Amino acid sequence: MGAVKKLKKPYVHSRHLVDLEVIEETSTIHNPDGSSFTVEPGDVLSVNEFGEKNLVPKNHLLHYFEVGKLEDTSFYEEMAKGYEEMAKINSGISKESEYLESESEFTIAKFVTGKNHL
């Protein structure tokens, strides 16, 4: 494959995250599905997460938007953080429930013993 220059940041197009590469010399591009095509210097390719490369017409480049740096956190780290946040919420709900339950038992005991002076 000929020399290509990968642009530094990822880009997004139609809800797909891609890398853009600028071709520096004439070459043939081969895709994982067996298809191939020839590119010329200055052509721009979009490369998706499956390694599939597509030629991007110059008038379509304005539809690609640069994406800022993506966080290096994994899915599992995000899930763990979510579970920690839910644990705090559930703990607060549990404490409120215990308080309300003890108040209701106290009120019922006052009614049963006749010590309710309303």
Rank of each mutant, 00 (worst) to 15 (best):
H13D: 11
K95L: 15
S27K: 03
D33A: 09
G92P: 06
S97Q: 12
L70P: 00
L17I: 09
L45E: 00
K81E: 11
T28I: 15
Y11G: 02
V112P: 02
P10Q: 11
P10V: 04
F37S: 00
N31Q: 03
H60W: 12
P10S: 04
E71D: 14
G68H: 12
Y76G: 12
K69Y: 12
G2I: 01
E84R: 07
L118S: 13
S46Q: 08
N54A: 14
F50W: 06
S46I: 01
L7V: 02
V67K: 01
G42H: 05
S46C: 02
S91G: 15
E66F: 07
A3H: 12
T73W: 08
E85K: 14
E98S: 13
K88W: 09
Y64N: 10
S102T: 10
K8C: 10
V44Y: 10
L100N: 12
S104E: 11
V44H: 09
L17F: 03
V47N: 01
E96Q: 13
K8Y: 12
L45T: 00
A109L: 08
V18T: 00
H117N: 15
H117K: 10
S35C: 06
I93R: 01
T73A: 12
V4H: 06
G114E: 04
T73P: 06
E78D: 14
R15E: 10
E103F: 04
H117P: 04
K115F: 06
K88I: 06
K58V: 09
E103N: 04
G34L: 07
S74D: 01
G82D: 10
N54V: 09
H60E: 13
P57Y: 04
L100H: 15
S91I: 02
L45R: 01
F37N: 00
S104A: 13
G34W: 04
G34I: 03
S35A: 10
L55M: 03
M1G: 15
A109W: 07
S46V: 02
S102E: 14
I23G: 01
V44T: 14
L70V: 04
F75V: 11
V44R: 06
